[in-house]
Amino acid sequence: MDLMFNISGLAETEKEFTTSKRDVLKYLKLIGVDSRFISYTPEKIYINNLRFSKFSRKREATFNKQFPEIKVVRNKLFQKICAKSSKHMALEIKPNSRILMPEDNFMIEILMEPYTRKYGVELVHDGEYDLKVNPIILDDEVNNIFESIFEGDGLNFRRDDNEIYPLANVSLEWINSFLEMDGQKGLDCENKNELANSFSEFLEDVAPQYKENVVKASEYIEKKLEAEK
């Protein structure tokens, strides 16, 4: 059942709102939407978490009357990606930190945008920073592990304390499926090691859920080795 929200005064104030980010977010708050759980872009509003955002169909209709040029995206796959990503972000992001963003990565941009409101972070593309976004995806993380093993290096734990990993547990398939639905350019795997990729393709056929298990096993070994130091 849709939650009731107070629209008294909207008629008087509607003309005061522009399409600036500040005004759009202000209007969302006014109609009862929690903007910590949506991603803002000038053309689209992406719902990260439907329940927590409180972005009901009724609120969407109210929003569309004021901003007909801004589309509200209710993509279930994107919401799943956000849920997976948030598990890392909750542990890695420090409130009010400056975060260095990668260039030309739409997926990272819309995933990180809400954290400017959730944790008060500042997203920057140059200059000084406290944390840096590493855009590695799940497929590359797994292939990096396989490559290290096949080359006789054992497990290389490549994570840095000053980096955050929004896509480290999100598969390329999920990412590109969403990007295609949204009319965006897809991503490619960075790891091009033939043996690692071939082994991944083999495992994909026999054990489709293997990727997250490989990463979990690697993280478990890393923690165990750290504890023994």
Rank of each mutant, 00 (worst) to 15 (best):
E12T: 09
K15H: 15
T19E: 01
D23N: 09
L25T: 00
K29H: 13
I31N: 02
V33A: 06
S35R: 08
S35L: 09
P42D: 00
E43H: 10
Y46K: 02
R51D: 11
F52T: 13
R57F: 15
K58D: 14
T62G: 01
Q66R: 13
E69R: 15
K71C: 12
R74Q: 14
R74K: 15
F78N: 09
C82E: 11
M101L: 04
E103D: 03
E103Q: 08
F106C: 01
M107C: 10
I108Y: 03
I108D: 00
I110V: 10
I110K: 03
L111F: 04
L111S: 01
Y115H: 07
Y115T: 00
G120W: 10
E122Q: 15
E122N: 12
G127S: 07
K132Y: 12
I137Y: 04
I137T: 06
E141H: 04
E147V: 00
E147Q: 04
S148Q: 02
I149G: 01
E151Q: 08
G152I: 06
F157G: 06
R159T: 12
D161W: 03
I164P: 10
Y165L: 09
V170N: 05
S171Y: 06
L172K: 06
S177L: 11
F178I: 11
M181I: 10
G183I: 02
L187R: 13
D188P: 10
C189E: 12
N191T: 12
N191L: 03
L195T: 09
F199T: 05
L203S: 02
Y210G: 01
Y210A: 04
V215Q: 00
S218Q: 01
E219T: 01
E222I: 05
E228I: 07
K229T: 12
